[in-house]
Amino acid sequence: MTYLKMPLTLEKIKNIKAGSQIFLSGTIFSMRDKAHKKMVEENFYPLNLKNQIIFYMGPSPTRPGRKSGSCGPTTSARMDKWTPTFIKKTGIIGIIGKGERCQEVKAAMKGKVIYLLAFGGLGAFYAKCVKKSEIVLFKELGCEAVYKLEVENMPLIVAQDIKGESIL
């Protein structure tokens, strides 16, 4: 079991192996289909995502007085089309999602990006890991907006490590 705290560097995570259990804390950014489409297809990257982790997730609305609505992962494969370009343009260091990636994405992640699995269908559980949440981009996209999240001890599994080894 490894406790990771943002910000991260390749040096810090290079020895973490595929299959390891991770508890992640710190700032991450949620985004999914529509945000990827806009950023990649319009070549529009207003956020500095260098060495950041993105989370494929669209939350349920936050009840008053709460930090977040339910917020589990969505299917990563839907982002495959945009991911290689997205990695190249932003310099992200990690992706959190659900399920397998295509070969092109696996190759694009090797040496640069750690792919972490969050557990599907556990939105309520993950909501409790969120200490702060705010929309930082594409507010008009509703649940598909980009959220900046402060998470604490978010349980994950390494699906593909920096060396490119994968458990999927």
């Binding site: 669209g58 339910s70 589990g72 969505t74 269908g121 556990l122 939105g123 309520a124 559980f125 349980p155």
Partner: peptide
């Protein structure tokens, strides 16, 4: 462990009114 998390999720959802999954 993952099954225990599923049960924990169900408990939080019902007790604290968070949807079981964000995709409703």
């Amino acid at each position: 462990y993952l099954t225990a998390l599923m049960l924990e999720n169900a408990k939080i959802a019902k007790k604290e009114l968070y949807p079981l999954c964000q995709d409703t």
